[in-house]
């Protein structure tokens, strides 16, 4: 019975996929965002093959080429030990994207499940979960990551865990508010009347209606997680050298400002570029799905 229901509901969704793509492709900001994101992801994946100096990822020292300004050989110039900054920026995307994937990969499932339960069951589940999100909201993720770094050791994994430990709250709040609205809608009540299991109602009836909001939020969040991660590594709490990391590069390059400006400015622009891509994409998706309240 539930199969029939799903089929009937899926049919129009599939046929509108092309329409959605059409509308999406006519939205300039969304398309720019998509292209930026695609470029960054591809560059990160293909980094060892497309970068001019893949060996500069490690602790290479080439003092004769240090502090060179951008040129045809070194598009973004070289750093204080003579490594190609462009290569390191491309490899830096790897860390940034991995951070986003790990943090959101942990935060979204947790946040979604808690939000669904709080919104649907109400009562004490709602009170406990939502108060817990209130507490988590009061802690700045960056400060939390700092505190965790203090207790454990300053490295990427700990920072990621710390950020993920707070990030789910935003998703919980979002899913909670949607679920609250859906709880009394006909299709949910119909499923209840038919004796559908709670599992079915939460994951087959309500969750599909949250997907567009989650997509928008995820895209926007990728940008913001990358920004927080960059701030952390800027403070020296990210992945440890010599592995290239955008925030770390900005920090170490800033010691040579303003003369060798490219060493911090260009990696900084790279962070901005990725974050911009995800934000434009998220904005475009928001217009497309018409979910104005998702930020």
């Amino acid at each position: 019975m539930s199969d029939e229901l799903t089929l009937a509901e899926d049919a129009p969704r599939l046929s509108s996929a092309y329409q959605s793509w059409y509308r999406f492709s006519r939205n300039p900001t969304a398309m720019i965002g998509l292209v930026i994101v695609a470029v960054c992801v591809l560059a990160a994946i293909l980094a060892p093959w497309i970068t001019p100096h893949p060996d500069h990822v490690g602790a290479v020292v080439n003092f004769r080429a240090r502090h060179l300004p951008p040129s045809a050989d070194y598009w973004f110039g070289t750093d204080n030990v003579g490594r190609d900054i462009f290569t390191r920026v491309i490899f830096g995307f790897r860390i940034s994207l991995m951070l986003a994937v790990v943090v959101l990969g942990t935060a979204i499932p947790i946040g979604t499940i808690l939000g669904l339960m709080a919104g649907y069951f109400g009562g004490w589940v709602e009170i406990v979960f939502m108060r817990f999100t209130d507490i988590a909201l009061a802690i700045p993720p960056l400060v939390m990551a700092l505190a965790v770094a203090a207790v454990l050791s300053p490295d990427l994994v700990n920072s990621m865990l710390a950020i993920a430990a707070l990030w789910w709250t935003w998703h919980t709040r979002l899913i909670y508010s949607i679920t609250r609205q859906l709880r009394t809608r006909e299709f949910v009540e119909a499923a209840e009347t038919l004796g559908a299991s709670k599992f079915h109602i939460l994951f087959r009836e309500i969750l599909p209606n949250c997907v567009s909001a989650i997509a928008v939020k995820t895209s926007l969040d990728c940008g913001f997680v990358i920004l927080v991660g960059a701030s952390l590594s800027f403070l020296g709490l990210g992945i440890q050298p010599p592995t290239p990391d955008l925030g770390t590069m900005v920090a170490s390059g800033s010691a040579f400002l303003p003369d060798y400006w490219w060493e911090s400015v260009l990696p900084g622009c790279a962070i901005l570029f990725v974050a911009l891509g995800f934000n434009l994409l998220g904005d475009g998706l928001r217009d497309l799905y018409d979910v104005e309240n998702v930020r």
Binding site: G268, L272, L280
Partner: peptide
Amino acid sequence: AIFSAVTPSFFLALLLQILAGYV
């Protein structure tokens, strides 16, 4: 709005420092 939302604070701080302080 988009650019100010996606520019990392520390990076903007550095840029402002270069621009207003050094240049």
